[in-house]
Amino acid sequence: MLLSHLTRNLRFNSGATWCRKFSRTVLALNDTKNVSKYAMFFDKRVQHILTDITGRDEEKIYRPRYRDTAKPTYRLVTDKELEKLKSDAEEKIQKTLQIPPVLDEKPDVNVILSKDEALAEHDQFNYVFTDISYNIPHEKRTVTVREKDGTLRLATNDEHKRMIQVYFPGEGRKHYMPNMFTEKHLERLLEEGEYEYILDRACVQFDPDETDYIRVTRRVYEYIADRSDFMKLYSTRHFGAAAFFLTVQKNIDSFIAVLINSNLLHSAKSLIDVYYMVHNQEQGLPKEWSNLSDEEAIMMFAKQEAKDGSRIELALQVYKENVEREMSS
């Protein structure tokens, strides 16, 4: 039941909705001089690389994810029809593999609209007023709170979200945060290796710039980085997000080593591209970068930038030996 909720919501949030919704906030951030590194997530080149390295493992994409069962259907098709089916499927797959944005925390709202002292002690409770008219995007919906002391202010992020959930309940989203996202239960789930489940449900429950979403997802990515368990997310929509987050954190040594072990050298080089784009925004890529082969580029990164370069070099060494062995046999 929950799984189908997750996936349905996934479809609901699919397409460019997220990008459109949150790139706007990033643009606003761009105006200020203090540009966050996470803003690079919406850079077209970065997006392209992240979707590219996500991978298309058939086994993974065709894993049974939906609990509704129905009779399988079969069709006899020509080559042409098969092409059409595949291109339709590709669209669907792209939607399901769209990367949830990695964002900075949303700044909290602290706007006092008026202070009416005549209304002080008017009641025992705060009053919340929500604009529930149609055709307003939820983030623009006005929610105000009249406090007991007569102050009228805009609702905080948490209050805003709760009121939206009351009047426009999101499918699969709970009114209160599910227990699995508390620290105690989250650690247990991580030990069980349920990364995808946690991340999927976090996407349903939270908005990507919410404090809890950022806490939960970053904990998962860091846990995965400690265990070098990246391939569990391969060919899922969270692979690119994990890669981007760790790149911003300058913690991609183990990630690159795992990519080399899985013979994904080009992906490793692309990820290093993202690294330079995020951290060397002024200088750009190193000289003659595009002329370097994958192996050379990775080696250069290991020597110049990596925290744990020896690890990457070792992975590269093993890769080379394997290739030589295959060539000779």
Binding site: P72, T73, V77, L85
Partner: peptide
């Protein structure tokens, strides 16, 4: 002809389960 299978648990994504092994596919 190609035989394409679609299943609910795979979100009805098409998968080729068999293709003609000797002759070319009919047009």
């Amino acid at each position: 002809y190609h035989l394409v299978e679609q299943r609910a648990e795979h979100d009805w994504l098409p998968r080729v389960v068999a293709s003609p092994s000797h002759n070319s596919v009919q047009e």
